[in-house]
């Protein structure tokens, strides 16, 4: 329960925010990415607004020795910019641009009556599994961030 309850509450607030700000609509996201078309600034507003409470929390965190319900903070320490990070981010961006869906809005959008998020999520899980197969045969995967 100590894990379940915070996860559920936080996920619900996150999903509510994605719906209120229209980030669950791929057309809205693509309109932001379409800098040469009729540019829609919504995603930028959402991201800047989201960064405010998030940044405050990271500042508060510095004064805390441990989280309120846990033993320790698990925040990635690495500052190294390796090729995997940049190639991975670039690959993700191509997929994001193609349809306008990223992992959060894809899961949140499952309940909105469209079949497309379901198909996208299935393909996304397959892509994650492919990556796992790729790395399992080589070096162990680095600790992930998000």
């Amino acid at each position: 329960m100590r894990n379940l309850f915070p996860g559920l509450i936080v996920g619900t607030i996150f999903g509510a925010g994605l719906a209120l700000s229209d980030m669950v609509n791929p057309a809205r996201v693509q309109a932001f990415l379409d800098v040469a078309g009729v540019w829609d600034p919504t995603l930028m507003l959402v991201m800047v607004a989201a960064l405010v409470p998030s940044a405050i929390a990271y500042l508060l965190r510095r004064r805390m020795t441990r989280p309120l319900l846990g033993d320790r903070f698990s925040i990635p320490e690495s500052r190294m910019l390796d090729p995997q990070l940049l190639i991975g981010a670039a690959t993700f961006g191509v997929g994001w641009g193609l349809v306008g869906l990223c992992p959060g809005p894809a899961f949140a959008g499952l309940v909105l009556g469209s079949w497309q998020p379901w198909m996208f999520v299935a393909a996304m899980l397959a892509g994650m599994a492919l990556h796992h197969l790729f790395t399992a045969t080589r070096a162990p995967a680095p600790a992930f961030e998000g």
């Binding site: 690959t91 993700f92 997929g95 349809v99 990223c102 992992p103 996304m124 892509g127 994650m128």
Partner: peptide, 9 residues
């Protein structure tokens, strides 16, 4: 797109 997002992330 789903495959790229899954693999890339």
């Amino acid at each position: 797109a789903g495959l790229l997002v899954g693999f890339g992330t």
